[in-house]
Design a protein around this nucleic acid. Structure first.
Lengths: 126, 126
DNA sequence: GCGGCCGTCTGCTGTCAGCGGAGAGACTTC
DNA sequence: GAAGTCTCTCCGCTGACAGCAGACGGCCGC
């Protein structure tokens, strides 16, 4: 019975609304793959490591503002355009999982506490 | 750390393009003041301290994605709307503060063709 | 097989997020 | 005019995480 305890180490409660870093990462990866570039290429131009860029694109790490600016430059776009793209993607994702957002909004904050119920399927083609 | 403790207090002047955290903070403060609320009120609803909210609004601290979501909820808006507002503000600031930006954007991108002459890396100036 | 390229996972260390405490203005009331 | 209150901001501390070096599995060409 030792196999029972399976603990997820870094599991943030998955909110009904996707997080900023997740949508941003998705957008960054889209921009990079559109240009047919590898992690190493884009990362070098942005002055960061490819490992870290991989984690940022998957929404696992929170990039600083300087990072975001560097990545926007490395991907041949501006912060304004990048943020606009993220905003658009938010709209799309909101339509998919957005039934809960009002409820969640009324609740205020769930700072790591509070059970989040609700299966959220973020299946989306970019 | 035997050397004299030289501390760099997170200081940077305005880059040609404003940073994400700066524009976001500006937008957050605008949303809060529009509702005639104090730092304490909004902060309590978001579950954070008013001191910290003050620093976030002034662009001094980098809020996490969960923080941003909580603040959006506390201000009665959604992440999508908040990010859209930030994107709009980016455009405005771009026109006002930087005559580079249009030119910069029109310059397009250097399509992965070799290393960019100016490394796009973090530009923290004096 | 094997060597190189691509992306991801694992630890580690330095830095900063986030808060508690206190101070500076601006009013109000006595 | 001082004592109280309310607002926002500055300072110092500590736990948490950003960011990277090293290594690994999958995939291709030779």
């Amino acid at each position: 019975m030792t196999e029972g305890a399976r603990v997820y180490p870094l599991q943030h409660t998955q909110p009904p609304e996707p997080l900023w870093r997740e949508v941003l990462g998705r957008r960054l990866r889209a921009l990079r793959t559109e240009r047919w570039e590898t992690l190493a290429e884009t990362a070098e131009r942005a002055g960061i490591s490819p490992q870290y860029l991989s984690e940022v694109e998957r929404g696992l790490k929170e990039p600083s503002s300087e990072m975001i600016a560097a990545l926007a430059g490395a991907l041949g776009t501006t912060l304004a355009d990048l943020v606009t793209g993220v905003a658009d993607e938010f709209r799309v994702l909101q339509v998919v999982g957005g039934r809960f957002s009002r409820l969640d909004r009324a609740r205020g904050l769930n700072r790591g506490a509070g059970p989040v119920s609700g299966p959220v399927a973020l299946a989306l083609a970019v």
